[in-house]
């Protein structure tokens, strides 16, 4: 239990703070659920910047724009309990570097991905050691990137991609009982962010890629109406799980726009329920994937801009150098 390499807290452990307001009956707080103020196909803004970590071959920092509720809570705080959260992560690329001595010969670039949450990234404190969900994210990220990198141009070398998540997305609204949803929906958004940031960092490291791969998320949600009943399921892009009462299914993709190819699909939840409940055929899994692809297209424009901006800075230097 005790980890000798770290500073441990009290041996008996500690308990997260319990707020009096959350002890009240569920009906008492349900009014506090943040509301989505975006159109169903409107994405949150992305902040993406490359090259902030000079000791890495490539790096990128990515931040989601806070949802309306969070932005409001920031500017005029009403409660110490944040209504939702907004993804913040840093990605570094190290390499191409020699493979470890124990590795066998590889004619291609060997990709290693690693995703870790900071202990303060989520509503519940995260452990220092990677848990299953973090490993899962790493594997999804690797498959998303493996199809993009031109690996045969970099024989017998390795590329390490490390992502540190400083702030994660919520899996659900904090006021809902922890067991009210089965799936950790926030992970989908985190994956999409990881893909976009890693893509920017790889471009910053100038590793050959087929395209700038971007991540996107779409979900089929059924929100509460004003009367407290659930409305018919709707397809929404770039969902913030805190803003929805019930997410029926969600999909994250890694998408290459110039080739119209998908390198990774992660679909969770029961989308059949949504399409069964209504006659709307647009709520099948294909619609969900299309929605996620559209979200990824949106992320790609930001990604392309960030990469282009850094490439122009780079080229500008070249011209300046010649002029001097």
């Amino acid at each position: 239990m005790t980890d000798r390499r770290r500073i441990n807290g009290p041996p008996s452990g500690t308990r997260p703070a319990v707020f009096a307001s959350s002890l009240k009956s569920a009906s008492g707080i349900s009014t506090g659920r943040p509301q989505r103020e975006r159109q169903p196909n409107e994405l949150r803004k992305l902040f993406l910047k490359t090259g902030l970590i000079p000791s890495a071959s490539g790096s990128a920092y990515l931040e989601f724009e806070p949802s309306a509720s969070l932005a409001a809570a920031r500017s005029s705080p009403q409660s110490l309990i944040p209504p939702s959260s907004a993804l913040k992560l840093a990605c570094t690329v190290h390499g191409p570097k020699p493979l470890p001595r124990s590795a066998s010969f590889s004619p291609n670039l060997v990709l290693t991905t690693h995703v870790k949450y900071a202990p303060f990234a989520a509503r519940q404190r995260k452990g220092h050691i990677r848990d299953a969900s973090e490993r899962d994210l790493g594997v999804h990220l690797e498959t998303a990137l493996r199809g993009v990198i031109v690996a045969e141009r970099w024989p017998k070398s390795g590329l390490d991609i490390t992502i540190t998540i400083l702030e994660a997305e919520d899996d659900r609204w904090w006021g809902d009982a922890p067991d009210s949803h089965d799936a950790p929906w926030g992970m989908m958004n985190v994956l999409a962010g990881c893909i976009t940031a890693a893509s920017a960092a790889i471009a910053d490291a100038r590793i050959d890629c087929l395209d700038l791969v971007a991540g996107g998320v779409a979900a089929i949600v059924s929100d509460e109406t004003a009367e407290g009943e659930t409305s018919s399921p709707k397809l929404m892009l770039d969902t913030d799980p805190a803003e929805h009462k019930s997410i029926l299914s969600a999909c994250a993709v890694a998408y290459m726009p110039s080739r119209d190819e998908i390198t990774e699909i992660w679909l969770k939840g029961d989308h059949s329920k949504a399409s069964l409940g209504t006659d709307d055929k647009n709520l099948g899994h294909e619609a969900l994937i299309d929605g996620a692809v559209n979200a990824a297209r949106g992320a790609h424009t930001v990604l392309a801009e960030a990469v282009k901006e850094s490439a122009e800075r780079f080229a500008g230097l070249m011209l300046g150098g010649n002029a001097a």
Binding site: I7, G9, P10, S55, T92, H114, P119, H128, D160, T162
Partner: peptide, 24 residues
């Protein structure tokens, strides 16, 4: 009572040579 618990992590990809996922 160990009321202050600082921990610093370098396993963030902050520089080559610090292996992510390795113990501190």
């Amino acid at each position: 009572l160990n009321l202050l618990v600082p921990n610093l992590s370098l396993s963030t990809g902050c520089a080559p040579g610090f292996i992510p996922g390795a113990p501190p």
